[in-house]
């Protein structure tokens, strides 16, 4: 496998997770700083089921997602009724707790030295299919009734309630969808690298995803996907930047927040209609006026 397939596969796996974060952070305006811990639940559950119990993958992966969603429900339950700060604070605590748990349960998870021997199943193609599938599902969601309600909740919770929107329910749905997608990303990841350890799923990972969503545009799935490619691709291609990765991200986002708060693409989405518009504009530019 060439270096570029490797990088591309990793980026596509990131796209899956970032798309999940987009539902929560971009659309609903909630911040989970323990999102990577849900990725860990997906990765470890599926990994353990396959390596220790030799469960088939088509059972192990869904099990990882379902467990993550169940845990997400418990974590979300006390927080969705409260102001948004709570979900960030609680998920941050949750992330720390999961890391501690993974480090501690050595017999099951391999502890700090990690879980090894996971079969390498994910390929560039399965990662690509997964990313396309997830993006499709989420863009369908964005244009659905719950998608609209998520955006309404992000914009103004009080007005949303006054319009009959069940705000805690909408927040919970957004949270669980993002948890499910992130956990699925965890399965993809574990079965690609064949190895996971607790240090991969700290709060900085979650913060990185939030940054990618904002860099691309608060309300644009296209933007989130694009910025995942740019932000996670850049340091891979330009190796000497690797150490500066966190700092470059941070500076870029601070610039964006100060000077272009809507993000790179703002609310623009790559829809067939917008695509036609671009092409039409392109043609107009290409054809010199004298031709007609």
């Amino acid at each position: 496998m060439t270096l570029y397939t490797h990088i591309l596969t990793q980026i596509l796996i990131s796209v899956v997770s970032v798309a999940g974060v987009f539902v929560l952070t971009g659309m609903t305006g909630m911040f989970s700083l323990g999102q990577a811990a849900f990725m860990a639940i997906g990765a470890y559950t599926s990994g353990i089921l396959v390596t220790k119990l030799s469960a088939p993958i088509y059972l192990a992966w869904p099990a990882g997602v379902v467990l993550a969603v169940a845990v997400g429900f418990i974590v979300g339950l006390p927080t969705v009724r409260l102001r948004r700060d709570y979900i960030s604070l609680v998920t941050l605590g949750f992330g720390e707790a999961i890391t501690a748990l993974l480090n501690r349960t050595t017999a099951l998870t391999g502890g700090a030295s990690g879980l090894t021997g996971i079969p390498k199943v994910t390929t560039l193609w399965s990662a690509l299919v997964s990313a396309v599938l997830v993006i499709t599902l989420i863009s369908l969601f964005k244009n659905s009734k719950y998608g609209r309600q998520c955006i309404a909740v992000r914009s103004d919770e009080l007005a949303a309630k006054s319009m009959g929107i069940n705000v805690p329910k909408v927040k919970m749905i957004a949270f669980l969808i993002s948890v499910a997608v992130t956990a699925y990303g965890g399965c993809l990841y574990a079965f690609y690298t064949a190895y996971v350890d607790p240090s991969l799923f700290g709060w900085k990972k979650s913060a990185e995803w939030v940054i990618m969503v904002f860099f691309g545009g608060v309300n644009s799935l296209t933007g989130s996907v694009l910025s995942t490619f740019v932000l996670s691709g850049l340091p891979e291609v330009l190796r000497f930047l690797q150490n500066y990765r966190a700092i470059i991200y941070a500076v870029l986002v601070l610039l964006i927040i100060n000077f272009k708060p809507a993000g790179l693409l703002g609310e623009w989405e790559l829809t067939p209609r917008n695509l036609r518009r671009i092409i039409a504009r392109g043609r107009r530019v290409q054809q010199p006026k004298g031709v007609n």
Partner: peptide
């Protein structure tokens, strides 16, 4: 504010 503070933290 959230994004800014998270970013500042990673910085």
């Amino acid at each position: 504010f959230f994004v800014s503070s998270i970013t500042l933290g990673t910085l």
